[in-house]
Amino acid sequence: MTGKIDLERRRELWARYRSWLVFIPLMVGPVLLGAGWTIAAICVMSLVCYREFARATGMFREPSISALVVLGILAVTFAVADHWYGLFVAITPLLIVVLAAIAICKDQPTGYIQRVALGVFAFLLFGICFGHLAYFANDTNFRPMLVWLILCVELNDIFAYIVGKTLGRTKLAPNTSPNKTVAGALGALVLTTILAAGLGSLVFAGTPINQPLKLITLGLIVSLSGQLGDLTLSSIKRDLGIKDWAATFPGHGGLLDRFNSLLFSAPAVFHYVGYMQGIGLNQVPRIITKG
């Protein structure tokens, strides 16, 4: 090992660095501004990610199903903004029923399963999974929690990249993601768990989670779910035969390439924290509908 990096890699790293300079304010800015901004920003992120997914899978050629998924994402955003968990939960089965019914209207049995299944899958990924991320905003302690989660998930990717490049020999899943290594995955698991538990002791200070075993479990959940989200989206990309979801950000691809790890981490962490201490329990529910 000479310690030098080739020109192409250097350019890629610079492109990634410049993209991060855009990403960081876009991610942290709304969180610092307030709950409404956070929910709105996550809604926009969900819609952009869905657009990338639809264009990559060919779903965009089905306008009625696409429109329903978009409406579903907007409905989830409304439920989150209203702090109405009952509606948040109810939207999923209702949307599946409507989606399956609307798909019949085209009177085209060929590809019915693919159309409906892709629609449901897209809604679950970008409506529900990202919806859980937005739901954190209903907690009074949402700012440190969200910054902590985003930081840990993004650093989880970076740890896997650095450890994989430095120590990686054995491929983790060569057909799914040729650049990922076992060492990278294990390194990220260890480093992210330490980081998440360490920072978590500050974020969750004075709450039932603030115990070493629970914090380590939380760290493991963040890292494992992050890596699984990344691998899942990589599987879909390989199935479609594409490298990136879009070409929006130099060095990163699309927005979905950057936030794919958050897809699984958000609901996993949400339900763990929710089970341990609850989320938004100290806030008035149904802020808009006044139910």
Partner: peptide
């Protein structure tokens, strides 16, 4: 139209 499972 046939179902098209292919990227844009």
């Amino acid at each position: 139209d046939e179902w098209e499972y292919k990227p844009a």
